[in-house]
C-alpha cells in the first residue's frame, strides 16, 4: 500500500513537471519551409515504391549471390553419398616409427628403396628426392654415387651449345619414368600416376592408407561393375583405380635375405615413401625430446621462482597495536 501511494505521488510530480516542461518548447519560426522538406523525405521513406524497390534489391542480391556461389552461407546442406565413395578407412598398423620417440627403421627404408626402384619406379616419379638424400639414410655415399652413375642425365649446353648426356651425380634428382605428365597419361590409359615424393603426407590415413591400398586388392564384390582396365580396391575412394595389384610374393629379392612377401614389400616401400615425405622425421623427434624436457623443466622452475617471489607478500602479517591511553 505504501509503495502504491508513493507511485501516485511520483505520477503527480511527473505531471507537474510536464506542465512545467512545455514552457521551453514554445520557440517557433515564422517560416515552415524547414519542416516541409523533412516531411517530404519522410513521405518518400514511407512510400510503397520505396518499399517495393528495397524488397526487390534484397531478393535480387540473394539471388545473385546464389547464382555466383551456388550456396548461401549459414544455411545447412544435406548430401546423399555412399560409403564406397570415400573408400574404406585404412587399417591402423603398428608402424615401428609410430611412437613419439621412434625413428624410422632404416633397414626397411633400404629395402623399400629397392622395391620402389624395381617396381614402382616403372610408373611413378620421385621428383623431390635426390641421390644425395639417400646418403646416410639407406645407402653409403659410394653406393649412391654408383647408382646415380647408372643413369644418364641431359646436361649442357657445352662449348658448341649442344646438350649432352652425362652419368648422374649425387646432386641429381631421381629420374622420372616419363618425360612429362602427358606422356605419363598416355602410357597409363589416361590416368596420371602421382609423384610419390610427398604421397604419404598427401593422403588421408598416410602410411596406413598406402599399405592398405597396396595389399587391399580383391575381386569386386557382387553387384559392383568395374570397367575394363580398372581394378577394384575397397580402400580407394570410389573403389576403382587404374593401378593394378603390383606386389606379389617373391617379386624382388632382398639383399639382406628378408623373405619378400607381399606385405613385407608393402611395409618396406611404405616406410621408404614415408621417409621421402618426411626426411627430417628422425631429427624432429629427437628435437622433440629435448624441447619437452627443457620446456617442462623451465616451467617447473618458473613456478618455483614465482612462489619464491610471492611468499613474503602473501604471508605478510599486519599487526595493529592500538595506542595505549595513558592519560586517564
Amino acid at each position: 500500500m505504501f509503495a502504491a501511494a508513493k507511485n501516485a505521488g511520483a505520477l503527480r510530480a511527473a505531471s507537474r513537471a510536464m506542465k512545467a516542461g512545455p514552457r521551453t518548447t514554445t520557440a517557433r519560426f515564422a517560416s515552415s519551409s524547414a519542416g516541409s522538406s523533412s516531411g517530404s523525405f519522410e513521405s518518400f521513406l514511407n512510400s510503397r515504391l520505396t518499399l517495393a524497390s528495397a524488397s526487390l534489391a534484397a531478393v535480387g542480391t540473394v539471388a545473385w549471390y546464389t547464382h555466383l556461389y551456388g550456396t548461401l552461407p549459414f544455411v545447412g546442406e544435406a548430401h546423399a553419398s555412399a560409403a564406397s565413395d570415400e573408400g574404406m578407412h585404412p587399417i591402423a598398423y603398428p608402424w615401428s616409427h609410430n611412437g613419439v620417440l621412434d625413428t624410422f627403421d632404416h633397414a626397411s627404408i633400404r629395402r623399400g628403396y629397392q622395391v620402389y626402384r624395381e617396381v614402382c619406379a616403372a610408373c611413378h616419379s620421385l621428383n623431390r628426392i635426390a641421390w644425395r638424400n639417400l646418403v646416410g639414410v639407406s645407402h653409403t655415399a659410394d653406393e649412391a654415387r654408383a647408382m646415380a652413375e647408372e643413369v644418364e642425365y641431359t646436361d649442357g649446353p657445352n662449348d658448341q651449345g649442344e646438350m649432352f648426356e652425362r652419368p648422374g651425380k649425387l646432386a641429381d634428382y631421381m629420374p622420372p619414368p616419363y618425360p612429362n605428365d602427358e606422356a605419363a597419361r598416355a602410357g597409363n590409359g589416361g590416368a596420371l600416376p602421382p609423384d610419390l615424393s610427398l604421397i604419404v603426407k598427401a593422403r588421408h590415413g598416410a602410411s596406413d592408407y598406402i599399405f592398405s591400398l597396396l595389399t587391399g586388392y580383391i575381386d569386386p564384390p557382387a553387384g559392383v561393375e568395374i570397367r575394363e582396365g580398372m581394378n577394384y580396391n575397397p580402400f580407394f575412394p570410389g573403389g576403382a583405380l587404374s593401378m593394378g595389384r603390383v606386389l606379389f610374393d617373391g617379386l624382388v629379392e632382398y639383399e639382406d635375405g628378408t623373405p619378400a612377401t607381399t606385405s613385407q614389400m608393402a611395409k618396406d616401400v611404405t616406410t621408404f615413401l614415408h621417409w621421402a615425405s618426411e626426411p627430417e622425421h628422425d631429427e624432429r623427434k629427437k628435437y622433440g625430446i629435448k624441447a619437452v624436457i627443457i620446456l617442462s623443466t623451465l616451467f617447473c622452475i618458473s613456478i618455483y621462482v614465482k612462489r619464491f617471489k610471492w611468499i613474503p607478500i602473501k604471508t605478510r602479517k599486519l599487526v595493529y597495536e592500538p595506542p595505549v591511553n595513558k592519560g586517564h
Binding site: 621412434d102 625413428t103 632404416h106 645407402h139
Partner: peptide, 22 residues
Amino acid sequence: VTKFHDSWNKGKQWKDIRDKYA
C-alpha cells in the same frame, strides 16, 4: 639425449646398420 635416443632406437638407425654396407 643422443645416448637415450640411440638406445631407444637400437638397431633401427642408419649408423647401426651402416657397417653391413660400407
